[in-house]
Simulated assay, not measured.
Amino acid sequence: MTAATVNTPLAPARRLGVGAGLRHTLTLAWRSLVQIKHNPMELLDLSIQPVMFVLLFTYVFGTAISGSPGEYLTFALPGIIVQNALFATMTTGFGLNTDLTKGVFDRLRALPIARWSPLAGRILADTVKQAWSVSLLIGVGAILGFRLGNGLLGLLGAFALLLAFSLAAAWISVLVGVLVSEPDKVQIFGFTVIFPLTFTSNVFVPTDRMPGWLQHWVEVNPVTILADALRGLLVGGPVVGPAIQAMIWAVVLAAVFAPLAVRALRRRV
């Protein structure tokens, strides 16, 4: 006697709401942050290197460029914060590529979670790391004599502008992290592109101290524009013009690289 087998059609997968997706994003962001406990070098890269830049440039070049280390610190610290934020965006692509090459991303996507939460969780975690790095630099700068010219409001505005620009620029890192085969290649891209971009800006040296042919590029360099906006917010000076230009750059970067990154990620996974 054989029992009859009835093939019951599977119920369609339930679509996850935005609230569930946000919870998944927060959980995965926390996962990325907790990993720092097992890999503290990840946080040290965002802590020691920027502090070294502040100390070395302030006390080695400060007198030669601005007359005194204190005056140079007032000029250079906002620019160093910008440079560090741009380098920190590379950690998003590095971490994403690591998850892709080791199969972690595939295992996450196999879970009943929102499809966009693994990437969103990675970006959110790196944004928290960005905030830590900026806070550290402001704190070290205060110890060395840096003083805020616009108080708490200017500081909050600088945080908001920098994090918004970093989120937009991070899509470049995401695209590179999806396209390359090894995490180290993401770092190579960062040093190849970001290093010349920051050193051909007014992050470390005022524009009028540079050769005339270079000044034309420095003035339109997005790193210069963002550094000028942060100087205005943290120290004093023009704010509206540089901030609007920086946000325009952020919108352009996000509009160009976010769709390319998402398309490349869908093809890879």
Results as ranks from 00 to 15, higher is better:
L100Y: 08
G236P: 02
A20V: 05
R231F: 06
L233Y: 09
I36T: 13
A11G: 13
G190A: 15
V134K: 04
V186S: 05
N39L: 09
L108W: 12
L144G: 02
V193Q: 05
W30P: 03
L22S: 03
Y72C: 03
F94N: 07
F94Y: 15
V180I: 10
A258W: 06
I36Q: 08
G177S: 09
G241T: 15
R147C: 13
F57C: 00
D228R: 15
T74N: 12
P78G: 08
A160C: 00
T74S: 15
V240M: 07
G17T: 07
L197P: 01
F159P: 04
D208W: 14
L119P: 09
A264P: 14
L46R: 15
V176C: 02
V203K: 04
G79H: 03
P183T: 01
A229S: 09
Y59P: 02
F53N: 07
G70N: 12
A261V: 04
V54M: 04
R23E: 12
V256I: 15
A164E: 05
L16S: 01
V269W: 05
N7I: 14
W171G: 01
P69H: 08
Q245A: 10
H216I: 10
G212T: 06
P206Q: 06
F61Q: 07
L162T: 10
G237N: 08
P206G: 07
T27W: 11
T101A: 13
P196H: 06
R15P: 09
G177N: 08
L253A: 15
P40V: 04
A11W: 08
P242A: 05
G145N: 06
S32T: 07
R115P: 10
V180P: 02
R109Y: 02
T25D: 06
T27Q: 10
G139N: 00
L16R: 07
T5N: 01
I194A: 00
F87W: 13
S66Y: 09
N202R: 13
P259F: 12
L152Y: 09
I36A: 04
D184R: 11
A158C: 03
F87E: 10
L22T: 05
R14H: 11
V239Y: 01
P242Y: 07
T27S: 13
T91G: 13
W249V: 02
P238W: 13
G79V: 01
G241A: 15
G121A: 10
L77G: 13
G103K: 01
E182T: 02
I113W: 08
L265A: 14
D184V: 01
P9A: 11
S135C: 07
L33H: 07
K129Y: 12
V193T: 10
F204R: 04
A170G: 09
D184E: 12
G212W: 13
T63L: 08
W213P: 04
A125T: 03
A88F: 05
A110G: 09
A258M: 15
T200D: 00
T63N: 12
T101K: 13
I138G: 05
L161R: 04
T200R: 03
N97R: 15
L156F: 11
D99T: 04
T98G: 11
M90P: 00
S32Y: 15
R109K: 12
M52L: 15
I65C: 12
